[in-house]
């Protein structure tokens, strides 16, 4: 694995643009990703995530702007860029007539790993992805989920400094997805990872920072906690209740000034709302409390707030 020089970002993007005719897929993107950071790109279909990754992997020429990976310019030195990256494309990318072991050896060989190192990495990744038992079966005989695991393993086999994972867990069952998360999490700090995903909880659980992109434009950038705080600020207790009179609400406002009536009950924003205290306030006024729940701000809320769209698979 190679490291960029001290203080230099693993990925630096400056004014990156991609236009297809009159349509702008990526507009003037500026971004730095630190070495060892797990960075997530979030956006709906057509937002420009995959186009950005393709430019960074030297598969597409930018219309304007530039970027460097570990100090290597994507326009001037694509071979040097390709030596330090591993890529798992959005669609499963395996050679169907080769076995898992042969697929991994192929990519290791193309990255110049010597035979013994390639064997060691292959065995390690087969183990991590749970493919050891079927390592010598042709990939075309695998289920979609197994092919996906192999595809991700192929991105990691060369032990790259920067890994691009475009929807890495799509098609995986929950158990396999959890296993993949654990593995990706284990790479944090050592390997710089750029992850695009439709699973917002995936970005929430794994990413150090998240960039929300929509229509080719960077809409927001920050840690998941920062983004959530920016959008809605704090959790909200939802009290489903009948018979909330003005007096009852007044009693509650003495304790929680942000409480307000909504259809079917009351909402009380705040970090430290006590369900017992709420009950003590409302009970003297014969309010019938049917249920209480706390709504935490999720990246779904952030996404909806920032783009006006819901992110769906």
């Amino acid at each position: 694995m190679q490291a960029s020089s001290e203080n230099e970002p693993a990925i630096r993007i400056e004014g990156l643009c991609k236009r297809f005719g009159s349509r702008t897929a990526v507009a003037n993107l500026d971004l730095d990703v630190a070495p060892g950071e797990l960075f997530s790109l979030l956006g709906p279909n057509g937002a420009g995530k995959t186009t950005t990754i393709k430019m960074l992997c030297c598969l597409l020429r930018p219309s304007a702007g530039t970027a460097s990976i570990m100090g290597h310019d994507i326009g001037n030195d694509p071979l040097a860029v390709k030596r330090v990256i591993g890529v798992s494309p959005q669609e499963t990318a395996v050679a169907p007539n080769l076995t898992a072991r042969e697929n991994l050896a192929l990519i290791a060989g193309l990255h110049g790993l010597d035979a013994s190192r390639a064997r060691a990495r292959t065995d390690e990744l087969l183990e991590v992805t749970g493919l050891t038992q079927r390592a010598d079966d042709k990939a075309k005989k695998y289920s979609g989920g197994l092919q996906r695991r192999l595809s991700v393993a192929m991105a990691l086999v060369s032990d790259p400094a920067v890994v691009f994972l475009d929807e890495p867990t799509i098609g995986l069952d929950p158990q396999a997805r959890r296993g993949m998360w654990e593995y990706i999490e284990g790479l944090k700090g050592e390997t710089t990872i750029v992850l695009t995903t439709h699973y917002l909880e995936e970005a929430d659980a794994l990413a150090d920072r998240v960039a929300v992109v929509d229509d080719g434009v960077l809409v927001a950038l920050g840690t998941p906690a920062e983004l959530k705080a920016r959008v809605l600020g704090e959790p909200v207790m939802i009290v489903e209740a009948v018979g909330v009179t003005d007096d009852a609400l007044g009693a509650l406002l003495d304790h929680y000034p942000q409480a307000h009536r909504v259809d079917g009950g009351i909402e009380i924003p705040g970090e430290d709302v006590s369900v017992y205290e709420v009950g003590d306030c409302l009970r003297p006024f014969d309010v019938e409390i049917r249920s209480t729940s706390t709504k935490h701000v999720s990246l779904d809320d952030v996404f909806l707030e920032l783009t006006g769209k819901e992110l769906r698979e």
Partner: peptide, 14 residues
């Protein structure tokens, strides 16, 4: 016509 080709193109092969 497959993603495999895109993957091959991201390796350092001339």
């Amino acid at each position: 016509e497959t993603s495999l080709f895109a993957r091959l193109l991201t390796t350092p092969i001339r």
